[in-house]
Structures are given as structure tokens and as C-alpha cells.
Design a protein around this nucleic acid. Structure first.
Length: 1086
RNA sequence: GGGCGGUUAGCUCAGCGGUAGAGUAUCGGUCUUACAAACCGGGGGCCGCAGGUUCGAACCCUGCACCGCCCACCA
């Protein structure tokens, strides 16, 4: 079968059809089968949010996964890559709400919960399609039939089951906490969803008058704040219980710390010491007085509201800072909240905020104002009342919501939490499984799972790559805080919390508990919570005699809900309106997608493969859990990796994956992380359109070297001049998405967000490397295929390594090394190294040397079939090696190769059936070693390079053939005889003689290479020749001098390892030899 | 404020104790029948700065400077 191969590679015409063929062949599909545990490879895709389209950072993430998956598929593992998308609760709702307001001027309250959720589903459908389209364009070989969304029925069921189990085990509680409140989205957000920004602010010092001061007592105390409006919620002023001792301790300890501190910190510490001493002398009497007043129960009057509040003693008030006194606002400051917890009986707690950020009735005359407006008014009123002692300008760090970009307010509200820390008597992990074990607490279980010395009951642990210790440090240090995880969000988009609750007085509680529906403990779990949030068993006789209590009832699944929710409602319990943090459902992703808790009954969409076992085959959960490798960026380690680990360990008794590959982040030309919101993101589709998917993948793999981050400078093609504009230096226009063309001063857009501005295409010359590689691959294959066309495909003969020519054996020996190097690079999570090894073999050895060498043999046709057979074999192996990196072009060439040469191999016939995507990964054959051939080729390359070098400096083009004589004897001569035809061909010689003795004719040039003298006849230009020889001599003399000096150093000779010294001696000898030859050549010239 | 990482050719990055590397850009040459999106050849580096350890330092140690990332409650 003859098939024309196009002269140029056209990615756009090739990629789509190839991808469709893979899909039709079911090449991405995974099914449980008989392959053992060590032959599975499972990757769970980090779920892209459905908030928007993907950028190059996602492309990196997806390409890394596809690389590993394709490699393992070729290793013949049972390979599952589970794709999916995340509902991304807060982020998606924020985007849709924003759009609703911009386009229709409506808020979520105008269209209601149902209406908003419906719109978010519409948005999700649109962006999910867009994301899948992008991933398919990149060549991602995920099992699309198994694709999941975090709000699919099967995932939702897992969320509910996980919640039920955590709740039953007392690991979920409802607490009165200060949370990070987003006043715009009106929800709590987690610490991880906050970004801190430094802004210019003020520090106000305010005087609170002392109520009826006694003689000698100060008329007021001064406190300071950056948020003056919070004073409306003050319930105390604190002073340190032992200011003298505290200052003394500082003065004693600081000198030691100063001595140990780095120089740059010293000045600050010394100033601190000086200040502490000054305070001891000047401020201490005042503080001691205040302490006595506090102990005496004295009070101060809160200005503006004229509310008496107590002076209290608490260590939070640091005598070395500010006035030594601190206002206490338990409702709006986390530290003050802690103070309140220590002084519950003495002081109150006041919430002054409404959920939307306006002040409530507790703010008295300021009620109804926005908090920032109130701040101005409070300051003005305090000033008018002479209460402001001083105002300082100061840089302050303000937490902003990552989603709405508005300042976060600490806000007192009831939220749901997962208990991360140790639990008395520990927690049972993997309950009901064979891997059941006890752990001190959720966070500790996840920490232990990464300890190299630790062996889980399953024998598995988690390891990070490519820098195990560094990333483990990030993971452990975050988990070690064991901060309870706030899982409730006041949103409408997400998994509803499956709790029905009511608040009852102790007197009513007994009766309610008696009337609880007769649901089994497998359907319903009930806790009673006291005002502190402590969980108590719902037994009337065990409860405290009085107080107010929350009754919390969790219904396990929709069936239980259907059966008993009505009964709960009749008792006065209502379902909690909140939804779960999006990370709660994504933490379950490694097993919720596989049908946990029961694959047999997992509900999947029509037409999708089921998750239960069929015809005796195991089910998906037992086959694909635990998974293999999670591929993601550093920032996700705490947000997601840690949470998947602890959920997997708790619910299934095993780590969800054993390896975590942390890849580099993509930065823009300024070195800032690429992100859509920054406006510096680029759509992989732009790059694919211009350079092709393989070119993009090639470059992403090549950039992934193991360092932190990768700079990707991009340029825009100016829509005004057509010239390139470097976005790293261009000025922004009216938004971060627009830039100003430096030449015309006109503005353009890069994302198509501003309707009236022209859009500039984005390019990055980095990707030209990838395109060049594809072109080279295409051309080399085209040459090979054209050559192979010459002979009939039918008469395949399996040649033996030993019967091949030296260059054939050389290329196979090099192939063997390349297979080892590529495999090792992939195993080490170093795609760049793996790709480099493949490229070096393909380009630097196969194309540059082997193909050129065998051209004459290929022309001989039937006389020597060996070159063609080796060529087909090596091309086969190169395509396999390169396929995970550049899947489209390699698959296309594989098809052409198969058409011409369906049977390939040497020593052993290869299995070449089927598409490349499922072909076997190359094996490094131990018997393809040939040091003799490699040394012959080394000589050939050296001589050819020497002649080319001379040609270049002498300006003698290859079209001018030259006769040459090499003076050599012994083994060198024998090797030259073997390689002479190749040398002649590659160095464009008209003839090459090897002689033991030869005197240079006057018309010959001479070049030397490793002791050999090469005479190029009838070419001489004496002056040019002299200059060239002198330059060579200078280089060698410099080398000799360096080596000589090194060997003359007795320290070196005595202390350096013997082989290093021997190597230097060899160098010295080589230099002397070359110098002697060159000197003789120079002498010959005259 | 704490932690982690980076600083090597114009650019993007390897190398991490034994003569400074790749790709790209640049310069010179070549249309050698697969490939000018190529081939051949060349130039270009106080390996951020200052000390130290070592026979020997881009590499190890200690400072300093600048850049980036993560974490953080200082009134």
C-alpha cells in the first residue's frame, strides 16, 4: 500500500480526525479487568471550576497528566484518567450573580433561590462544554464516558454519606464562631479564600473616659484601632495582669535574641528593647494603676454610645505596644473573641453588623449605615467630642475575599465545622473495611500518611514529587495547625447540609426527644448541642438540668429524608439553609466518582458505564481506589491534597493516591502567576490554533524541569500596526485586560471583553520550538517513508543485531540508551529531561548522522535491505517514545509507517498492530550494546567535524569535493578503514586514503583530531592555513597550561580521587600530542 | 512578621564539588535530491554581591541585595 505523505505537516487538519479515531476506538476507556493491583494507573483530574475557560496554567496541569497517563497506557497498565468539573460553589455563584446584575440589573433575591440555581446550571453547561473542548483540543486522553461533575447524583450521594458518618462520629459540629464574612456575597469564606493586601490606612488613638475617677486615677484610657467603627461593639478595655513582669521578661530576654538575630533584624529589636526600658520607667506606673483599677472593677464609658464597659485583666493587652491597653470587640475581632471566651461572665459580646455590611441596631445612631460610611462618621463624631488623641498614617494588611474582592469582616455567626484536631479516644478510620485503623484525629491521620517511616495498614503512603521533602513540609505545616474546617456557606449553589435542627429550652427537650421519629440509627443520627456547640447524646436522662439546646438531626440519604423529614418538621425542626464548602465535595472526588459507598447501586447517567462489578469482574471502587498520582500546583497542596487525604483515610482507611506530582506554575513575562482575574492568562486554544497542539505540549513538557515557576513572555499582535507588543512592558489601558499600543498610543483588548476595542491575537515565540520539532519529525519520517516505499512490504525479514552494519548497530545502541533515559526522566517526574533525551536521540543522532549515513545504502535498493529494516524499526521506536509528548503527529506518522511496513523489528519482531496510543512502550534491549560501533562512530563524527570546521573557516563549500588522506596506524587505521565510506559521504570528500606514512604536499591543508593528521589535498591558502593552525595551537596551549598547573599542585595530586587525577594526566598528554602535531604543521607550511 | 524558592549567555531555562551547557536570538557559510519552519560553523558568561570551607566552589556554609510564592490575629 502506497500512501502519499504531505510535504508539510498541518496540525489543524490532522489533530481533529486523530482524536476522533481514538474516541471511536475506545482508547481512553477504562474497565476493571484481571490486571493486578500493580498494573493499575489512576489519575483523578484536578477539577477545573466551571467559572470560566482554561488558561495556560491549566494546560500545563492537563498536559502533565496526559503525559503520565499515555506513558502508563503504553506500559500496558489498566489506566484510568477521570475527568470532571467542580461546581465551585462560591466562585460560580459570584460570577453568575455579577452577570445577572450587569445584564439585567437584578440581584439573586429578585429571582429567588430556584431561579438563580437554574441560571447557574445553564452557565455550568456552557462552560463545562468549553472546558471539555479545550481539553480535547490539547489531546487529553481522559475517559470521557466516566466524566463527573461534583453535583452529579453519584457525587452528591457520597457527600451526604460522608457528612452523615462525620456527624455520627462527632466530627462535625455547629459552632458560634467569628468567621470571615464576605459582605457582598453574604457568606462565610474560609481562610484559604482570603487574599491579604497592604493598603494605606490610619491608626486612630481614642480616649475612653474613666467613670468617676478617684483621686490620682487618670481621667481616661487610650486605645488604638485601625477600624474605629468597631468601637461600637466594644465590651471591655483590657490591661495586662502583670505589666511589670511582662516588661521585665522582655528586657531580660531581648539581649539574647538580639545576639542571635540576623543583622538586618537587630536594629528593630534594639529599638524594641529601648522602648521596653523606656516604658518600664515612664508607662509602668500608669499601667499598674490601671491594673489596680481593673481588679477593683472600675469601668470606662464607651464614647458615642455612652455604654459603661469594664476594665479587665487579660494577657492579650501587651504592655510593650501602643498605650498598653486594648479595646475588646469580641464580635468583630478574632483575638478579642478569644479574650471574650476567657471572660464570659464579666463581659458581653455585641454584633454590630448586618450580613450586608451595614450596621445594625446595636450601633445606635449609626444603624443602617454602611460600615465604611460609619467609620467616617464615627471618626468625625469622636473628633468633635475631643476623643481622638492622635491619628497615625500606617500601612495595614486587609483581608479581601478572593471571590468578590471586597474587604472581609470578622463576623459572628453559627457555622458548621469539621473537627481537625485530636479527639479523645481517637477516630476510627476505614470503619467497616479491611483497612480499619485508629488515628488521633483527622489532620494527624493525614500527616502520618506522609511520614517516610510510617506504614499505614495498607502499606501505602503519600509521597510528593519531584521534591518530596519540600512539598511535604508545606503539607504538614498546614495540617499541623489542626484548625477546624468551616464547611458551611450561606449560598444557594452547592450541596445542601442534610441537617434538620431546632432550638429548645431544656424543659421542652425531653418531650421532643420522646417524639423523635422511630428511624433506625442507620437512617438518622441525632445530637444535642449546648450553647458552646458541645455535642451531647440525645438521652433525656444524661442532659444537664437546664439551659437552651439545639437539636441536630442528620438524615442519611434521600430515602430517609422522604420517610422522616416530615416528622422532624412537625417537631419544629427545619432544614439548615446553608450549603457545603465546595472543597467538601472535591475532597471526596477520588472515590465519590467511583461509586463510594456502594458502586453496585451508584446512579450514573444513561449510556455511561456503570460502576458496579459485572460478570464476575471487580467493581470500579475496589479496582481504582486507591489511585496513583495526583498532578497539581503547589497552591493546591493545602486546599485540596490535604483534604482528599484525610477524607480518604477516614472513610476508606487508605490514601486516595500514593504520589503527588507538583508541577511548576506558569507566569507571565513579568514573573507574575498567570490567572484570568489578573488579565495575564492566555487561552491554550490561541496557541493551538497558531502552533498546533503538539507544539504546545512539547514546549510545556520541555519547560517542566522541576524548578518553581516558568516564565512565559507573550506578545500581542497590534491590531493597528501589525507589530508585536510585549505585554510584559506594555502599559495597561482602562482595565487589566487592555493594553496601550506604544507606537500609536491606541488601546486594544486581549480577551475580547470590551466590545468597542479591537482584539489583539496573542503569540509567544516560545512555542516555535515545538513547531520546529514537529516539522523536523514530519520531514524525517517523510524521508524514511519515501525510502521505504522503494521495496515491497511483503517480504519482511527479521535481521539479527550481529549481522548489521556498524552504523546500524550504533543507532540501535543509542536507541537503547535513549529508551532508558526517557523512561528514567518520566519516572523521576522530569518531563524536560525525558523529552530532551528523546529529542537528542531523534534529532542529534538519528537525523543528523544515521539518516545521512544510510542514504547511499538506501539507494542501493534490494542489494541491502538492512538499512531500511533498521530505519523502520528506529522510526517505530521513536514514535513510541515521543507519543506521550506529541500524541497527534506521532499517531499520524504511525499510521503511515504501518501502511508501508506493517512488520518491524530486529532480533525479535515487534507487535505493531493497533493505534500507537495503545502500542507497547519500548524496552531497552540489553543485547543491543556495541561499544566497538560506538567508538567507530565517535571517530567518524570527530573526523567529519574536523573537516567541516576547516571548510567553514576556509570558506570551502561542501559542493566542492576534496580528496583527503589520513595518516594513521594500528587500531586507528583499522577503524578508519571501516568508517571511510561514511566519512567521505558526510565530509563531502572525493576520496579518502588511510596511510601509515604521509608527507604533506605543499598544496594540502592539515587538520588534526585526537592524534590523527588529516590532509586535505589541493586546497591550500598558506596565510589562512597559518592563522587557523595558530588559533588551534593557542586553544590547546591554554588547555595545557591549565592542566599543567593543576597537576603541579601537590594538594591536588595527593588529595583528589585517583580517577580524577588520572583523567587530568590524560588531558595533559592529549594536549601535548595535539600541540606537537600543530607545531609540525606550522613548520611544514614554510 | 514567619516559611519556602529563585538570581547562570540578549531571552527562557538545565547543571548543584572536578575543563561553564541546551534551545532560542545573534554573526558567517550552504538551496549537500526529507527538511531554508533546514543544514554546517563561529562569537557571546567575574554562574546576583561579599566572606568562609576545600587540593579544587556556579555547586557546600555564613551574611547582604533584589525578585517570586505560600502562610500570618498584632490594638
Amino acid at each position: 500500500m502506497k500512501k502519499e505523505i504531505a510535504k508539510h505537516y498541518d496540525p489543524a487538519a490532522t489533530e481533529g480526525p486523530i482524536y476522533r479515531r481514538w474516541l471511536e476506538a475506545g482508547a481512553f476507556a477504562a474497565f476493571p479487568d484481571g490486571r493486578g493491583e500493580d498494573r493499575r494507573y489512576v489519575v483523578m483530574m484536578p477539577l477545573p471550576n466551571v467559572t470560566g475557560a482554561l488558561h495556560m496554567g491549566h494546560a500545563m496541569d492537563n498536559v502533565m497528566q496526559d503525559l503520565l497517563i499515555r506513558w502508563h497506557r503504553m506500559l500496558q497498565d489498566n489506566t484510568l484518567w477521570m475527568p470532571g468539573t467542580d461546581h465551585a460553589g462560591i466562585a460560580t455563584q459570584a460570577v453568575v450573580e455579577k452577570r445577572l446584575f450587569e445584564l439585567e440589573g437584578k440581584t439573586r433575591h429578585d429571582i429567588g433561590r430556584e431561579g438563580l440555581v437554574r441560571r447557574i446550571w445553564e452557565w455550568k453547561e456552557e462552560y463545562q462544554q468549553r472546558i471539555i473542548g479545550q481539553q480535547q483540543e490539547m489531546g487529553c486522553s481522559c475517559d470521557w464516558d466516566r466524566q463527573r461533575f461534583t453535583m452529579d447524583p453519584v457525587c452528591t450521594r457520597a457527600v451526604r454519606e460522608a457528612f452523615f458518618r462525620l456527624f455520627r462520629d462527632g466530627l462535625i459540629y455547629r459552632g458560634d464562631r467569628l468567621v470571615n464574612w464576605d459582605c457582598q456575597l453574604q457568606t462565610a469564606v474560609s481562610d484559604d479564600e482570603i487574599v491579604h493586601e497592604t493598603i494605606q490606612g490610619h491608626f486612630w488613638h481614642i480616649r475612653y473616659p474613666v467613670i468617676e475617677p478617684k483621686p490620682g486615677e487618670p481621667p481616661f484610657v487610650t486605645v488604638a484601632t485601625t477600624r474605629p467603627e468597631t468601637m461600637l461593639g466594644d465590651t471591655a478595655v483590657a490591661v495586662h495582669p502583670d505589666p511589670a513582669g511582662e516588661l521585665e521578661r522582655l528586657i531580660t530576654e531581648l539581649p539574647a535574641r538580639i545576639a542571635a538575630a540576623p543583622a538586618r533584624d537587630r536594629a528593630g529589636l534594639e529599638a524594641g528593647l529601648e522602648e521596653a526600658r523606656r516604658r518600664k520607667d515612664e508607662l509602668l506606673p500608669h499601667l499598674l494603676l490601671l491594673r489596680t483599677m481593673a481588679a477593683d472593677g472600675r469601668r470606662v464609658l464607651l464614647p458615642l454610645l455612652d455604654r459603661p464597659i469594664p476594665l479587665i485583666l487579660d494577657e492579650w493587652a501587651r504592655p510593650e505596644l501602643g498605650s498598653g491597653c486594648v479595646k475588646i470587640t469580641p464580635g468583630h475581632d478574632p483575638n478579642d473573641h478569644d479574650v471574650w471566651k476567657r471572660h464570659r461572665v464579666e463581659i458581653g459580646i455585641v454584633n454590630i453588623l448586618n450580613p450586608d455590611g451595614t450596621l445594625n441596631a446595636n450601633a445606635g445612631p449609626y444603624a443602617g449605615m454602611d460600615r465604611l460610611e460609619a467609620r467616617r462618621k464615627v471618626v468625625a463624631d469622636l473628633e468633635a467630642g475631643g476623643r481622638i488623641e492622635a491619628v497615625e498614617d500606617r500601612e495595614i494588611e486587609i483581608g479581601h475575599s478572593d471571590r468578590s474582592k471586597t474587604p472581609i469582616e470578622p463576623y459572628l455567626s453559627k457555622q458548621w465545622f469539621v473537627r481537625m484536631g485530636e479527639v479523645e479516644s481517637g477516630i476510627l478510620c476505614g470503619r467497616g473495611t479491611k483497612k480499619e485503623f485508629r488515628a488521633p484525629g483527622l489532620a494527624q491521620a493525614a500527616i502520618d500518611a506522609t511520614d517516610p517511616a510510617y506504614r499505614s495498614p495498607s502499606g501505602r503512603r503519600l509521597e510528593f514529587h519531584p521534591d518530596p521533602e519540600r512539598y511535604r513540609g508545606t503539607y504538614v505545616s498546614w495540617l499541623a495547625e489542626k484548625r477546624d474546617w468551616c464547611i458551611s456557606r450561606q449560598l444557594w449553589w452547592g450541596h445542601r447540609i442534610p441537617i434538620w435542627r431546632g432550638s429548645f429550652d431544656r424543659s421542652a427537650l425531653g418531650g421532643i426527644l420522646k417524639k423523635m421519629p422511630p428511624a433506625s440509627s442507620e437512617e438518622l443520627h441525632v445530637w444535642v448541642a449546648d450553647q458552646e456547640g458541645n455535642l451531647l447524646p440525645p438521652r433525656d436522662e444524661d442532659l444537664p438540668a437546664e439551659g437552651r439546646f439545639d437539636l441536630l438531626a442528620c438524615l442519611r440519604d434521600p430515602a430517609a429524608e422522604k420517610a422522616w423529614a416530615g416528622a422532624l418538621a412537625e417537631l419544629g425542626l427545619v432544614q439548615d439553609p446553608d450549603v457545603l464548602d465546595t472543597w467538601f465535595s472535591s475532597a471526596l472526588w477520588p472515590f465519590s466518582t467511583l461509586g463510594w459507598p456502594d458502586p453496585a447501586t451508584a446512579e450514573v447517567e444513561a449510556g455511561k458505564p456503570g460502576l458496579g462489578g459485572k460478570d464476575g469482574a471487580p467493581d470500579c471502587l475496589s479496582t481504582y481506589y486507591p489511585g496513583s498520582c495526583l498532578v497539581t500546583g503547589r497552591d493546591i497542596i493545602t486546599l485540596w491534597v490535604a483534604r482528599m487525604q484525610l477524607m480518604g483515610l477516614y472513610l476508606l482507611g487508605d490514601v486516595p493516591f500514593t504520589d503527588c506530582f507538583i508541577h511548576a506554575n506558569i507566569q507571565d513575562g513579568k514573573g507574575e502567576r498567570m490567572s484570568k482575574s489578573k488579565g495575564n492568562g492566555i487561552d491554550p486554544a490561541d496557541i493551538i490554533e497558531k502552533y498546533g497542539a503538539d507544539a504546545m505540549r512539547y514546549v510545556l513538557c520541555d519547560m517542566q524541569t522541576g524548578t518553581q515557576d516558568i516564565r512565559l513572555p507573550v506578545q500581542a499582535v497590534s491590531p493597528y500596526t501589525g507589530k508585536l507588543v510585549d505585554l510584559a512592558t506594555a502599559r495597561h489601558g482602562r482595565t487589566v485586560f487592555t493594553y496601550v499600543d506604544p507606537e500609536t498610543g491606541k488601546e486594544f483588548d486581549v480577551l475580547g471583553t470590551i466590545p468597542d476595542l479591537p482584539v489583539a491575537k496573542i503569540i509567544s515565540e516560545r512555542f516555535e520550538v515545538g513547531r520546529a520539532f514537529c516539522t523536523k519529525l514530519w520531514n524525517a519520517a517523510r524521508f524514511a517513508l519515501m525510502s521505504l516505499e522503494e521495496e515491497p512490504a511483503g517480504d519482511f525479514r527479521l535481521f539479527r543485531f550481529a549481522e548489521l552494519e556498524p552504523e546500524d548497530r550504533w543507532v540501535l545502541a543509542r536507541l537503547r540508551r535513549a529508551v532508558e533515559a526517557v523512561t528514567a526522566g518520566l519516572a523521576d517526574y522530569n518531563p524536560s529531561q525525558a523529552l530532551g533525551a528523546a529529542r537528542e536521540f531523534f534529532w542529534g543522532e538519528l537525523c543528523d548522522w544515521y539518516l545521512e549515513l544510510i542514504k547511499p545504502r538506501l539507494k542501493q535498493g534490494a542489494a541491502d535491505r538492512r538499512a531500511g529494516a533498521v530505519l523502520a524499526l528506529v522510526l517505530d521506536q521513536v514514535l513510541r517514545l515521543i507519543h506521550p509528548f506529541v500524541p497527534f503527529i506521532s499517531e499520524a506518522l504511525w499510521e503511515s509507517l504501518g501502511g508501508l511496513r506493517p512488520r518491524r523489528g530486529a532480533d525479535e519482531e515487534l507487535d505493531c498492530r493497533g493505534p500507537l496510543i495503545t502500542a507497547a512502550w519500548p524496552v531497552a534491549r540489553a543485547d543491543w550494546r556495541d561499544e566497538g560501533a560506538e567508538s567507530d562512530m565517535g571517530l567518524l563524527q570527530g573526523v567529519v567535524r574536523a573537516v567541516r570546521n576547516w571548510r567553514s573557516t576556509a570558506g570551502c563549500p561542501p559542493s566542492r569535493k576534496i580528496a583527503a588522506v589520513v595518516k594513521a596506524g594500528g587500531e586507528d587505521a583499522a577503524a578508519l578503514v571501516r568508517t571511510a565510506p561514511g566519512i567521505s559521504h558526510l565530509a563531502a570528500l572525493s576520496g579518502l586514503e588511510i596511510r601509515a606514512e604521509f608527507d604533506r604536499p605543499k598544496t594540502a591543508a592539515k587538520v588534526v583530531h585526537s592524534g590523527l593528521e588529516i590532509f586535505l589535498l589541493d586546497v591550500i591558502d598558506v596565510e589562512a592555513e597559518r592563522k587557523r593552525l595558530e588559533a588551534g595551537l593557542a586553544r590547546w596551549r591554554k588547555d595545557l597550561e591549565r592542566t599543567d598547573k593543576k597537576l603541579a599542585n601537590p594538594g591536588f595530586v595527593e588529595k583528589a580521587p585517583a580517577e580524577v587525577v588520572a583523567e587530568e594526566r590524560r588531558r595533559l598528554e592529549a594536549a601535548r600530542r595535539e600541540i606537537a602535531l600543530l607545531e609540525r604543521s606550522l613548520a611544514d607550511l614554510s
